[in-house]
């Protein structure tokens, strides 16, 4: 049980996926303008991370490892994830149209987002078992969503006071400096759960 708690604290607070590991910076900086889009994105990332971990775990331990092909994991993971997404999209469209409407648009993300590939690689590198992998995926996604939601609040303030910002900082540079301050505040959690 204590390993699960350690994983949860690390994934959400001490080693937050965006703010200290820099996985998934593109959506973090690109979509975090408004609260509701941040939340939608966050939920979708949690969902796709769990799905990706579910498929890649058996592939690594039941196919690649027995055959001594672990070095192929990058190619295998990305290919399998891509195929799986296509399947999921078709099935979802047919079976659960309401869910497809809310989450469907985000599904292509699963293929080429470094946060998603990152979490599957991390599960293997940290040699988590199946349960731990799923918990790690869920809470890594949760940490991502938390960072995005917090940051969207900060960012709306930064954007509001744009006229006070020096001209050379308006736009992305100011956003990055704001992200640095949010990331600094997460440093306060360091040492927790050890």
């Amino acid at each position: 049980m204590s390993t699960y708690i350690t994983i949860i604290i690390a994934a959400v607070l001490t080693n937050n996926f965006v703010l200290s590991k820099f996985y998934g910076c593109c959506p973090f900086l690109g979509v975090s303008k408004k609260l509701d889009s941040s939340m939608g994105m966050g939920m979708a990332v949690i969902f796709v991370m769990i799905c990706a971990s579910l498929v890649t775990y058996p592939i690594y331990y039941f196919i690649l490892e027995p055959l001594d092909l672990t070095y192929l994991r990058t190619v295998a993971f990305i290919l399998v994830i891509a195929v799986f997404v296509q399947l999921l999209e078709i099935v979802m469209k047919k079976v659960m149209p309401p869910l497809y409407k809310t989450l469907g648009v985000y599904l292509p993300l699963i293929t080429t987002n470094c946060a998603v590939l990152g979490v599957t690689i991390m599960n293997i590198d940290e040699s988590y078992n199946f349960g731990e992998s799923i918990v790690n995926a869920f809470f890594s996604g949760f940490g991502f969503a938390l960072a995005m939601i917090l940051f969207s609040g900060v960012r709306s303030r930064v954007d509001e006071s744009e006229s006070d910002t020096p001209a050379m900082f308006r736009g992305i540079p100011a956003t990055l400096v704001a992200a640095a301050i949010v990331s600094m505040s997460f440093l306060g959690f360091g040492g927790l759960g050890q």
Binding site: L19, P173, T175, A179, A180, S183, M184
Partner: peptide
């Protein structure tokens, strides 16, 4: 630290 990454990139782009 991670925060420094965001900070330096912001300054350099500016």
């Amino acid at each position: 630290m991670p925060a420094g990454g965001f900070f330096v990139l912001g300054i350099v782009i500016a």
